[in-house]
Design a binder for these strands. Structure first.
Length: 565
RNA sequence: GCACUCAUAGCUCAGCUGGAUAGAGCAUCGGUUUGCGGUACCGAAGGUCUCAGGUUCGAAUCCUGAUGGGUGUACCA
């Protein structure tokens, strides 16, 4: 439910009745519980425009405010704040509607748009490492979120499958007559071995160079080898995606090579528009105000990633028909995207109203604030990191005895992977983030375990109760009032998070929901003796909606819940 | 050099389109009637929001400058 919108509409109505001919600003959540549920701060802003005292304006608004439905009370405070209280009966009825609805009252967009989310994008010549983690899970969350809200999401995994190093790799693959399954287990090692051969043996090096040319000219034998190599390498990525619980499949792959045939057209089209300048033998686009040009063709005739990105932009905007194209890529590439987006729009590859955005994120750091590396300074393989998360999760599970080995493994996977993902998503994506096992696997604070624990705790209430839930929600105290208001904010939070592409807005919200629930539950017993039937039912209903909201929220983040931990 | 970005409690971080006494968690200290899962809950303490100006009725938030960190800067992606 669009809670804020409903309140805003009531304010708007009051404006009209009071004869105030201005568009009211939006209400905001009250900064403190004593200030009500929402507050309207627009009276102060209007004071100058209307030439009136803000408290007087506030009075006029309040006098015309409909307090018969959604709102129960409005008060003027301080210089002209209007504090608003929601009607507890209305809250109760809305929570009941949400609880019965499979979408928890979250409406699907009336006008869905087509969105391309470009994320993960691993390099096929290397094994996935921690550098791919953030793009993969932030991107997946964004795609999940937009899908949930009703947009038509097209996931695009722009894998790096083209370039000179592949000549060397397939030459080596052929040389060892490998079907791939064994030696490619460790791609890093395979790459090193191939490089070793390349450096040590001139004949091999020449063959590798020859193969690069052959692949590019479409030699079928080399292409076959190349395809085999990509298949195997992609298989490794899928193993990671599977462990990570990320919704990327082979259908989402649009590799760099996919755009090969279009690259020369991109350049000639730019040329036809007169935007190209030759500089030092390279074909460049010089953008007004930018010192460095966008190079689309090297002096040796080769193309660059800017060329591929332009081709991809055009494909996504024109062929796929995307109205929003989101690139979930490291913040360090900000300059590149800014330029490429500009070129794409100025050249008419992408319509002006298409929203091109670089969803930038910061670097993953170790505890000491340095870039995340292994002890000997190498890159950390993503698969190793995830396996370690599962091992560490096992250590944190308290009641190991009551689980079979398989159950323990499954549980540890849910907890460990959830912890890694949540810790990443919970932070403002643009800042660098410090990776800390102890913190992310803690039951305390804003962690996935705290959420999963709360969820499991609620499920245990229902296990214990084990009966039919029939009755109504009755808002009986301030905590129930706040909890129900918080639960009804779900859609507002999701919508906002979707606009900002900010998963941490969802985690912050879930944390607020859970901590409120924990307080509510501490103070308001449900199944204890002496709780009358109507109260018990009401509290069970609230607990149920809370659990459903947690589950749905975590689901969007790609994190699983369990009934018992 | 130029450009981008960040600077909030001891630590890790929230703070949405400017709003009331700047909020959490961790750590520290103290508390919770046989505790519906105590891996919980409550409380205390902890701040010149890097600094200096400016805009505004009102600034952590917007603008300018300074300082300090990070990043990028023409044929890698």
């Amino acid at each position: 439910m669009k809670l804020k919108l409903q309140i805003n509409n009531i304010i708007k109505e009051a404006f009209i009745k009071a004869g105030i001919e201005h568009e009211p600003m939006s209400v905001s959540e009250a900064t403190k519980a004593e200030f009500g549920d929402f507050q309207f701060n627009g009276a102060m802003a209007l004071s100058k425009k209307l030439g009136k005292n803000p408290r007087m304006i506030a009075t006029e608004i309040i006098e015309n405010l409909d307090l018969t439905g959604v709102l129960a009370k409005a008060e003027i405070a301080g210089p002209g704040f209007i504090n608003l209280w929601l009607n507890p009966f209305w809250l109760a009825s809305q929570c009941e509607i949400a609880r019965k609805d499979s979408r928890l009252g979250v409406e699907k967009r009336e006008t869905p748009i087509k969105v391309v989310v470009d994320y993960s994008g691993p390099n096929m010549a290397k094994q996935m490492h921690v550098g791919h983690l953030r793009s993969t899970i932030i991107g997946d969350t964004l795609a999940n979120l937009l899908t949930y809200l009703g947009d038509e999401v097209i996931r695009q995994n722009h894998i790096g499958d083209w370039g000179t190093q592949f000549g060397m790799l397939i030459a080596y693959l052929e040389e060892i007559h490998e079907d791939g399954s064994v030696s490619l287990k460790d791609l890093e090692q395979f790459y090193k071995d191939a490089k070793g051969r390349f450096d040590a043996d001139d004949a091999f090096a020449n063959k590798a160079r020859e193969y690069v040319v052959k692949i590019q000219s479409g030699d079928s034998h080399c292409l076959e080898l190349w395809q085999k190599f990509i298949d195997i390498s992609l298989g490794h990525c899928e193993e990671v995606y599977d462990k990570l619980g990320v919704n990327l499949t082979r259908d989402d792959v649009r590799a760099e090579s996919f755009y090969n045939d279009d690259l020369s057209t991109v350049v000639s089209d730019l040329d036809a528009k007169g935007t190209l300048t030759q500089s030092d033998g390279a074909q460049c686009v010089f953008l007004e105000g930018d010192e460095v040009p966008v190079i689309v063709q090297k002096s040796d005739g080769g193309y660059l990633y800017a060329t591929t990105d332009l081709a991809a932009l055009r494909y996504r905007a024109q062929t796929l028909g995307a109205q929003r194209i989101s690139y979930v890529v490291d913040a360090r590439q900000g300059g590149h995207f800014k330029q490429v987006f500009r070129v794409a729009k100025e050249a008419g590859f992408v319509d002006p109203d298409v929203n091109l955005e670089h969803i930038a994120f910061g670097t993953m750091m170790d505890k000491g604030g340095k870039p995340f590396k292994t002890r000997d300074g190498g890159t950390v393989k993503l698969i190793d990191l995830l396996d370690e998360a599962v091992v560490k999760a096992k250590e944190t599970i308290n009641d190991k005895a009551s689980y079979s080995e398989e159950q323990l493994e499954a549980l540890a996977k849910i907890i460990g992977i959830g912890a890694v993902k949540y810790a990443d998503l919970a932070i403002n994506r643009e800042s660098n983030y410090i990776f800390n096992w102890d913190k992310m696997l803690s039951f305390e604070g804003n962690t996935s375990l705290y959420m999963q624990y709360a969820y499991a705790r609620i499920q245990s209430i229902f296990r214990k109760y084990d009966g039919a839930i029939e009755g109504d929600i009755i808002i009986g105290d301030a905590l129930e009032h706040r909890l129900s208001t918080m639960l009804l904010r779900f859609e507002d939070v999701l919508s906002r998070a979707a606009v900002d592409a900010a998963p941490n807005q969802i985690t912050t919200y879930l944390y607020d929901v859970v901590s409120l629930f924990m307080r509510f539950y501490e103070q308001n017993p449900i199944l204890k003796e002496g709780v009358d039937e109507a109260t018990k039912m009401s509290r069970l209903l609230l607990a149920d909606l809370t659990a459903k909201t947690i589950k749905q929220g975590l689901d969007i983040l790609g994190i699983e819940t369990v009934d018992k931990l």
